[in-house]
Design a protein around this nucleic acid. Structure first.
Lengths: 365, 365
DNA sequence: CAGCGTAGTCAAAGCGCTTTGGAGTATTTG
DNA sequence: CAAATACTCCAAAGCGCTTTGACTACGCTG
């Protein structure tokens, strides 16, 4: 041990020792620190000072065991088994949620798990009683985790929804269908007819809803749906690039794209420029913008026209919902009605959209 | 409670009940499940089956309290106080680390904390004894967290280094200096003389080392360092765009960029194309590539020439190191020598670099 | 047949905290 | 002045698990 560290080294204190030091009982010390009224202000002050001086903090494990509250929330983030990818939106979502937890004194337990293992891990975390509640990420169309958690009687909030699950549960979602209907509608208003959709993985519920909105907008104007103009995949930059390149090399190339995230949209832009076309004139793009902190689509006229909904804010709200549900449950307000929250995406016009250019030059293959 | 959930509802079992059900003592059941030798195979089988049937899992809090091991590792990820940003490399780092933890039966405790609060939170987590070890992210030049943790006598591994700390500690880092010396050297070899550096935040230790490597390469060839060609900031796409645009509008614009991450590099590319210049010909770029899963800089000839080092792998290694340190400590092998691991970045040539074009056309301002 | 090792089991203590149910003083009240 | 009423404080139980130390039954050795 070196000099520097010795200087600030505190022996780890526990309640018993602290009480002994003060000549008080553990009870009194505990109550003093936890703000119970039946201890005099004088003693409380003395106890607080001693605790501060000795750098005392209650052992969380013991506290949890005694109170029955873990004071922590579980997040299980899926990592695509094939590609070992973690969607960057989790950074922002968790940053929002984490802020809320910190405020309320909760910790955040993170499990990074291959999506094939989800059921097991959720059941595991819940039955080990290591958390007071869970956030369910990236629900699929009929997500098996939801009935499992319902059966385990642990509070949880789903970020997104699962169309195939009919029984009520707590969720927070963006109105994906409407967002994509509007995005597509905007392009239709600009005269575009060949509109492509670069969506997320087909198994995801959000992708399904987005596709729905897109199709609805087209059918609304009697425009047939061309399956060649719809792609589903992990939303990487490269996916955007490759899919756009492929579609644009076709004879009847799309004049516009609706893209599920800014990341593949960056790839689409690359493909457009590579093809010698003018971004926002020859080809229009509307994206769904999660307002990721490292990809702020900002400025007076942002780069991309977008339906925007901050995923960071979603994290914050979802966390707040969950904490509220836990609070209510602790106070014995029984199993209330499920809490559900639908956020509307906000449309902002950027540089990536313009009216259809009538003489469509074909892309260089 | 609906029908579906009732079907899979298990009442939460504890050791005592399970033991009672089996007509055995808690001791025996505990030992049977934990693989102790002094229990007969017949009983062990019976116990295992009963545990399985009742979906029994030991309460982690109680187990931790009894064993003194939290079986979890803490990560404190900094969120820039000004911009509420979480660096996307954490997704990948944590995904790598999480895999290692899962394998070893550890949980991951995540705190998302404004960087101003770091000291408090580290001290807090350590003294609350909620984790068995910590990973320190994003160390600054002289990082105060390191002496604090040394004083608290809790195992930790730093991802990166802190040049100002002289006492030994465990770390895992990329050879940033050499990587950037090579990157800059490559551009010099191609004839470039006006080479800009778009770095991360100046307070970060890695940024300092990278800057060092860059300067060393230049000075090695007697090229003076132009402070106007060096920028430090949060590594967003927009930062890359704005910084590159500003630099390229100068009379003596840079002909090449060394960029600390693929994300601002995407912005640099945008600025280049916006200026009507040809990427990889009029302006060259070498990036540091963290091999982020959503930004694979791959392909036969990747988009960017890069010094690459997978941050996911770094997470995995750092986690493995920490677990090993904890294991050794548990086994009483005292305070061994610190574990330190330096990864070398790998140079790959992409489309973003080419020899200096002698007649430099000035960018449109 | 006394003595002993061994395999299998158990009761009870303990991890560090909270919380229940008093108990001992000091202060008011009838 | 006795009794009721705060006001402080405490001993001990309990949270669900692991682990120590002992105990029983059995087969074996000498």
């Amino acid at each position: 041990m070196n000099f520097q560290s010795a200087l600030i080294n505190f022996p780890l204190m526990n309640l018993k020792q602290l009480a002994q030091n003060l000549g008080l009982s553990q009870t009194t010390v505990s109550r003093a620190l936890n703000g119970y009224p039946e201890v005099s202000e004088a003693t409380r002050r003395k106890v607080r000072e001693a605790a501060e001086a000795h750098n005392y903090r209650p052992n969380t494990r013991a506290k949890s065991l005694a109170t029955g509250r873990a004071m922590s929330i579980g997040h299980v983030v899926p990592v695509s088994s094939k590609h070992e990818m973690v969607n960057p939106i989790f950074s922002d979502f968790i940053s929002g949620a984490g802020e809320e937890y910190a405020r309320a004194g909760y910790d955040l337990l993170l499990s990074v798990v291959a999506d094939s293992d989800h059921e097991r891990v959720y059941r595991d975390i819940a039955t080990r009683q290591i958390v007071d509640g869970l956030i369910v990420h990236a629900p699929t169309l009929t997500d098996s985790r939801i009935p499992i958690l319902q059966g385990l009687d642990i509070p949880f909030v789903v970020h997104g929804r699962s169309s195939g699950i009919t029984s009520p549960y707590n969720w927070l979602d963006v109105n994906n269908r409407r967002a994509f209907e509007r995005a597509t509608g905007l392009l239709l208003d600009l005269g575009h007819r060949r509109i492509a959709l670069l969506n997320g993985l087909a198994s995801m519920d959000f992708a399904h809803r987005r596709c729905d909105g897109y199709k609805r907008a087209l059918l609304d104007r009697n425009i047939p749906i061309d399956p060649d103009l719809i792609a589903h995949d992990e939303m990487t930059e490269n996916y955007g690039y490759e899919a756009a390149r492929r579609m644009m090399s076709a004879v009847d190339r799309p004049t516009a794209f609706v893209v599920s995230s800014i990341i593949p949209a960056i790839g689409v832009r690359r493909a457009i420029l590579d093809a010698g076309l003018v971004f926002g004139r020859d080809v229009s793009i509307v994206i769904h913008d999660d307002d990721l902190s490292y990809f702020r689509n900002a400025g007076d006229v942002p780069l991309f026209t977008a339906v925007r909904s901050s995923v960071r804010q979603a994290g914050q709200r979802a966390a707040a919902m969950l904490l509220e549900i836990i609070r209510r449950r602790d106070e014995g307000h029984g199993s209330d009605a499920p809490v559900q929250f639908l956020m509307e995406a906000e449309l902002t016009i950027g540089q990536s959209t313009g009216p259809l250019v009538t003489t469509v030059p074909n892309a260089r293959a």
